[in-house]
Simulated assay, not measured.
Amino acid sequence: MRKYQLYLIEDEFASHYFGRERIFFHLFKENRKAAGELKKITDLQISYITKPMPVLRVHQLLHKQLEKTSCFVAKNGCYVVEAANKTSRASLSVRETYILIESEGGYEAETTFFEVLRKSEAYFLAIDLDNNKVGWLRPIKERKFV
């Protein structure tokens, strides 16, 4: 099973750390293991670099984009997508500070959620701490100065 936590990163941090997403990954991983004073410090750092999750807008977007899909189910604020061939399944729940996506099987179901979310916000960062993966839902385009 894969578990992704999606955070909205503040614009200035997202553009400054483009290409160095591993720094964010290490902060979140350190926060997961931390206790006591270190936990408080990393919590503050995370709240400083992230935006609050626009919960209502995310719910509206998911309903609007996926409600006509036969493989989509919404129940008690949790959303489930299952691939037509039943080889892939993903669930999404919206929290106050992040979105949690849990998936198993192939990547089709989780990709459905990623595609919807990437259209809504520019700086969603997906972190899978268990599998040591991190990446932007919508890669940031580098500005080229002439």
Score class of each variant (00 low, 15 high):
Leu100Cys: 12
Glu108Trp: 00
Glu67Gln: 15
Leu61Tyr: 01
Val94Phe: 02
Lys86Ala: 05
Val81Arg: 00
Phe28Gln: 00
Val80Ser: 10
Lys86Pro: 00
Ser88Ile: 03
Ile49Asp: 04
Tyr98Cys: 12
Asn76Gln: 12
Asp43Ser: 14
Leu62Asp: 04
Tyr107Met: 07
Ile41Glu: 13
Val55Phe: 09
Phe25Asn: 03
Asn31Tyr: 05
Cys71Phe: 09
Leu100Glu: 15
Ala34His: 07
Glu96Ile: 07
Ile41Pro: 00
Arg95Trp: 07
Ser93Ile: 05
Glu67Trp: 01
Lys68Asp: 15
Ala109Asn: 04
Leu92Lys: 07
Glu37Gly: 04
Arg32Met: 03
Phe24Val: 02
Lys75Gln: 14
Ile46Glu: 11
Gly106Pro: 01
Lys29Glu: 11
Lys68Gln: 15
Thr50Gln: 00
Thr97Ala: 14
Glu82Arg: 11
Val94Lys: 04
Ala109Arg: 00
Asn76Ala: 15
Pro52Ser: 10
Phe24Cys: 08
Glu110Asp: 09
Gly36Pro: 09
Ile49Met: 10
Lys64Arg: 14
Thr87Asn: 04
Glu82Leu: 08
Leu66Cys: 10
Gln60Cys: 04
Ile46Tyr: 10
Phe72Thr: 09
Thr50Leu: 03
Glu110Gln: 15
Tyr48Val: 10
Leu38Val: 14
Phe72Pro: 10
Lys39Met: 12
Arg32Trp: 01
Lys29Ser: 12
Gly77Thr: 03
Lys75Gly: 02
